[in-house]
Design a binder for these strands. Structure first.
Lengths: 297, 297
DNA sequence: TCGGGTGATCGCACTTCGTTATCGGTCTGT
DNA sequence: ACAGACCGATAACGAAGTGCGATCACCCGA
């Protein structure tokens, strides 16, 4: 069996077909004509020696070996694009491009401090930030769509393919309108709350549920929202209070403030996460610039 | 900045230049003409936006960003070839190809048992075995030249990029000609020994050195050899004795036998090792088929 | 049976990638 | 100092890879 004639292009097209759910759709997504996709996928199948897509009259199914190949190919393609992206010069003439995902809970001066630190070591290195839920982040880390994630450290968020390292801990406080002067456990029992929906805030909600048990809290949730902005908006309107890590105090709207509850201090840890497979010199430098900073490891 | 026009070929050629130490040498190694290499490397540099090789009158130097890029590119290329290799059908029509490195010390029925087990799960999956020293193995694991290694588990053999998992333990015995009936600590004090050279047997020698301390042994080494076959040959000739793990008893030549020394039982552990970056479905199956077997993890 | 959907095939143009021949450069030994 | 051996870069050109539009064969629901 000779050397492969498969290249990155073959992986990219084949993956696109699987993702787009069809040859025509893939061609559209890739901005090329459909026959080119057909041809490339056929070449790939011929080289590998098995069919990836079982074509039927309408639509197709992915064969079992095809599924295995696609899983591996996705990782490989992500690794490839990562090394190119990390090495290419950007507009500023400096090298590097890192895509970071972070949970809204991880907003903190700690993050910007780490980014400043990185910027001193690698001037002009571009960092692209995207807010996303913890679950989405884990998925994107595995597919290579993001390089690094900052998320809520929680036992329910584990994956053998993803390494996590705690970066800092803080405690959960109550977000209230500025007009309120103090809070207490008793007050929480009677208050109404606006909290993120479980679909998007699964691990934070799980952590809150656990924190409610000990003091016997059963907060009445009058409203749920998908995004933090909406939650804060509701709180500012006086619809209810909400819980948030105290380290994120800086990112609160002016109308709100966050306060620790005397006698109730649930801890929350933010961790940095990355795929075991994602490994470039630049990413190591990035991770180190965060770890040295907070004396972890 | 548009999408890259860099492909696997660019990585392969650029790496070849760095490895071969020259454009002409690289061309020869790749079995192509030299101008093709020049052109491809130039295209790569243009796309990345910096020079990888600083050409001087005679020879060249690798620039700092070039070195970083090359390190990443090596990993990426290895990942690419691994996924293709793992997916391609072999002559038997079954899928998979794994390259395994093993230390001569790891020869054992445990290994063949694990391979049998894998063969039941993945019939026809090709496994390519190469004997190499522990140090070479670590290097090859990192470059992706081998997928899995079986090596002597030793504190001096550590690398953040490589994961190790102990697979089995055994004890060290003395290899003697069949004519000898029993061995003792006192006998070892007077005997001559043939042992592997330190360059190729570094970690085993370190382990032996430590094991000699407690009973106060200072074996007289009359001969050193590079390969295990040569060592056994010398022992069979009566030149001296040697030390070897008892689990490898099966692989001894007929003229020799291995015996435990009463009152001296240094332990030795064999571990399976793999690069953190090396990750395909097939390799996970391989590792699992070994780990389940010996109830580790 | 007829449109509207799928993917496969064909023929042609452009790009990529390989070749050979040749150039200009630096070292080295006379 | 100069010839010769080595290096990498360049030029010109052929072969292969890769794109395109047009078209075909097929399945399905109206």
């Amino acid at each position: 069996m000779g050397p492969t004639r498969i290249g990155i292009r073959h992986l990219r097209y084949t993956i696109a077909v699987a993702d787009a759910g069809g040859f025509r759709a893939a061609a559209e997504a890739l901005n090329i004509a459909q026959p080119a996709v057909s041809k490339t996928v056929q070449d790939t199948e011929k080289d590998l020696g098995f069919t990836i897509f079982q074509r039927g009259g309408s639509g197709f199914e992915i064969t079992e070996p095809g599924r295995v190949f696609l899983d591996d190919a996705r990782l490989t393609l992500a690794a490839f694009e990562r090394t190119i992206r990390a090495s290419r010069q950007n507009e500023l003439g400096a090298r590097g491009h890192i895509i970071v995902g972070y949970s809204a809970l991880a907003t903190s001066s700690h993050i910007s401090a780490g980014l400043d630190r990185l910027n001193r070591l690698h001037p002009g290195c571009q960092v692209e930030m995207h807010v996303m839920s913890t679950d989405t982040m884990m998925k994107n880390l595995k597919t290579g769509e993001i390089d690094i994630g900052f998320l809520l450290f929680h036992e329910s968020v584990q994956d053998p393919q993803v390494t996590q390292r705690p970066i800092w801990s803080t405690q959960i406080g109550v977000v209230v309108p500025r007009s309120i002067d103090d809070v207490s456990l008793d007050m929480l029992r009677d208050a109404d709350f606006v909290i993120g929906v479980r679909e998007n805030w699964r691990s934070f909600r799980a952590l809150l549920d656990a924190a409610f048990v000990e003091p016997g809290l059963r907060p009445s949730i009058v409203d749920e929202a998908w995004d933090v902005q909406v939650i804060f908006q509701r709180v500012a309107e006086g619809r209810g209070l909400t819980f948030y890590p105290i380290s994120a105090a800086d990112s609160l709207p002016a109308a709100l403030k966050i306060m620790a509850v005397p006698g109730w201090a649930p801890q929350l840890t933010i961790a940095m996460a990355w795929s075991n497979v994602a490994d470039t010199k630049l990413l190591r430098a990035f991770r180190d610039s965060f770890c040295d900073n907070f004396a972890c490891k």
